[in-house]
Nucleic acid binder design. Structure first.
Length: 463
DNA sequence: TCTGGGGTCCTAGGACCC
DNA sequence: TCTGGGGTCCTAGGACCC
């Protein structure tokens, strides 16, 4: 279940009427994909302009380490924190990967997703900046608000990406969307100082590929007729949804480019990839994609996980592990409260020292967001995993979410019946315990757990 | 000093119900 | 007694994305 609540209307390729000019006009479906250029690095450079041109790597994406680094930066001049010194400064043992690196750092062979300590070796003079998530979120909100002011049909695709429906927006049809794309690009730059790249095409699939054509600060316009010239020469991996595994399989079958993929019969693809994937590959290779924009979405799950500074043993490091486990549950509970959800599927994720992962989950017959309940049920899940190997990661997840308000409404529905029974019990001289059965018991539990969650004031999810 | 964190979606088997 | 489908929910794992 996707949990989506509202989607954009689907546009036919030819639309009937332009209400602004009162002149009949053909509206072609134009979808834009907007991608912020080097978002994390650019946000950091706005704050520390003195670092322009210097080799900089952006932190490990591990919140605890980044917070420690943020502290360290508070009283040490930035220019004096080369990455090689960082472990000493922050008491950090160096697990984690860097999020991104500036061009000057890339020249030393440093790249995103690279282990932090490997980056330190390759480019010891590089300056390490923490990821300041609060700052990133502020800029993310800011550029999306600017877009919404101009073009209200926007799909949020994460911190630095959106799809925008240009079809009915003034200027959205001019030069295939280029005029509106320029306006959005210019407004974002004027108001935030950040640049972005935009691709405009007949659908999301092509728009996503187009936005990469002229990075950074570029615009690319793609029409259906451009399929052969602009899309088919690209590697299959450029299709959003073809990852390393699918790409490897395609390579084994002798398919490298999208054009080669497009030459295959649909039945041949279905034979090799299954009904669904095969049909999708065929459509994608021919530039076909009729997915609507998802304007609103409900979360499916909320989770927290952490990689330990060193691998932990379930028995020898029981106390440390237990404390981390409890904290993760508290963080998930706080996130649930902050976002206004409760859930009934509670699960854990473990990663062992050999990097293999397992998950266990359990579904309750009531919704909860309570940290103690999460800890207790997650603890039961943990008991179902044999723990001989050392652990490198522990995570806690809550799924099957519903809005807290809906859960409370739902839970309260059974209240009148229970009150009736209670009255009956009170009015009967001798209390009859059998008046309340197991179902009543479960109902009461549901009500109390939901109301307890509802009674907590919203607060910032935090560590 | 290998390999972060937070998500979504899909598949596949088994339980259970009609 | 045996033999059916179909549908839904739960669980585990994995691919993929940002």
């Amino acid at each position: 279940m996707a949990g989506k609540t509202q989607t954009a209307p689907r546009y036919p390729c030819v639309h009937a009427f332009d209400h602004l000019s009162a002149m009949p006009q053909r509206l072609i479906r134009r979808i834009a994909h907007l991608d912020m250029d080097a978002f994390y690095a650019s946000v950091e450079l706005l704050r520390y302009p003195q670092l322009k041109g210097l080799p900089v790597v952006i932190g490990g994406g591990r919140r605890s380490a980044d917070d420690a680094l943020l502290q360290a930066h508070a009283d040490v001049p930035l220019s004096r924190i080369p990455v090689a010194d960082f472990p000493r400064l922050a008491g950090y043992t160096g697990r984690g990967v860097i999020t991104t690196a500036t061009y000057a750092a890339r020249q030393s062979g440093v790249g995103s997703a690279m282990g932090l300590m490997k980056a330190a070796k390759l480019c010891p003079q590089a300056i390490l900046l923490p990821v300041d998530f609060a700052e990133i979120r502020r800029y993310s909100r800011a550029f999306k608000d600017i877009i919404l002011d101009i073009a209200p049909q926007m799909e949020d695709r994460g911190v630095d990406e959106v799809y925008i429906d240009f079809t009915e927006v003034p200027g959205g049809q001019r030069e295939g969307g280029r005029v509106l794309a320029r306006l959005i690009q210019k407004t974002i730059f004027q108001q935030t100082g950040l640049t972005c790249s935009i691709g405009v095409a007949p659908n999301k699939l092509l728009a996503k590929m187009a936005s990469e054509f002229n990075k950074p600060n570029g615009i690319a316009i793609v029409f259906e007729d451009d399929l052969h010239s602009k899309i088919w020469p690209l590697a299959c991996r450029k299709i959003n949804g073809i990852g390393p595994k699918a790409d490897e399989k395609l390579q084994r079958l002798g398919i490298t480019t999208i054009g080669e993929l497009a030459q295959k019969e649909v039945d041949w693809l279905i034979d090799h990839f299954g009904q669904k994937t095969g049909a999708w590959l065929f459509a994608a290779a021919h530039g076909q994609d009729d997915r609507p924009l998802e304007l609103e979405s409900e979360p499916v799950s909320i989770s927290r996980e952490t990689t330990f500074e060193r691998d932990l043993h379930a028995v020898r490091d029981k106390a440390e592990l237990g404390a981390i486990f409890t904290r993760l549950c508290e963080q998930v509970a706080a996130d649930l409260v902050a976002k206004g959800y409760v859930g009934k599927t509670i699960g854990i994720k473990l990663r062992f020292d050999d990097f293999k992962s397992v998950t266990r989950d359990q579904t309750l017959d009531y919704y909860t967001g309570d940290a103690k309940t999460l800890r207790q049920v997650a603890g039961q899940c943990l008991k179902r995993v044999p723990l001989t190997q050392r652990l490198r990661l522990l995570g806690v997840r809550v799924a099957s979410l519903i809005r807290l308000a809906d859960a409370a409404d739902d839970a309260l529905k059974v209240l009148p019946a229970l009150i009736n029974k209670a009255h009956k019990a009170i009015n009967t001289a001798a209390f009859e315990p059998q008046l309340f059965d197991a179902q009543d018991d479960a109902d009461l539990r549901k009500i109390t757990s939901t109301l307890l969650a509802a009674a907590k004031p919203p607060q910032r999810a935090g560590d």
